[in-house]
Amino acid sequence: MLSKLYDFIISKHLEILTVIFIGISLFLLSQTENHTVLAVQTKWQDITLFIKKPFVEQQYRRMVLDENKQLRMEVFRLNKEVSRLQNLSSENERLRELLGFRDTSHYEMLPALIVYKGFKDGSDIIMLDKGKKDNVKKNDIIVDKNGLVGRVLSAGERSCIVSMIIEPDVRVSARINPVRVYGILKWHHGNTFIIDDIPVSFDIQPGWTVTTSGLSEVYPADIPIGVITEVSSSDNGFTYIIKGDYSVLFKNLHEVFILSGNGK
């Protein structure tokens, strides 16, 4: 009996190995956020960062110079906007004080360079050149100039792995402005999102903005997410299906900001 088993193993060793490897691969496929793999990936980024970074920086240098010209014009326009908003803010603060409210949000913004953007198109993770040494920790929020990008999944000493909100499993608690309707936002396809189960009793229009709601434990309030492009009724007729475009162009991300403190 044992000799037969031995013969079987010897004659079918290639098939047995293949089945074992396929089994392990399928097990790994069922693990979405395996901490061991994340730790290995972060360590790898830490090791290779010093080689990668100068090349990435050189690549972005030219792009940044062009962008700088446009940003100067934008700064002028925004300065005017800021002075208007400062007036409104001081007025708002005064009114909040009168009502007994207190503003609790407080962020520290840390610029970070993307050193890895995924093996293929449609990748939903990126790696940044900032880590624990820069006080980056798990669940810190990542934004770019246009809005919400994602959160830190794992932080190494000098780099970190970020999960972007275009990951199919990610849900973000969102608020539709200006009506202040709350819903759960998820990735749809490409650079678009979807929010469903919004009651039809609300009047919602394309062109309105979507921001984070602040109801989530991870994402603070009022970070722009996107703009509504389509509002349609669901099959049951009681709710809306809202589609929109993300403000952030995830394919063209180069530099992002890490928000520490999360406004909590």
Binding site: F27, L29, T32, I161, P168
Partner: peptide
């Protein structure tokens, strides 16, 4: 490949699965 070229959190193990099958 899945460790050093990560693309998506959902596909750890996909490269090893397809590569093992194809090479077999």
């Amino acid at each position: 490949q899945d460790i050093v070229y990560p693309g998506s959190l959902h596909f750890w193990g996909l490269s090893s699965l397809i590569k093992t099958l194809l090479i077999y």
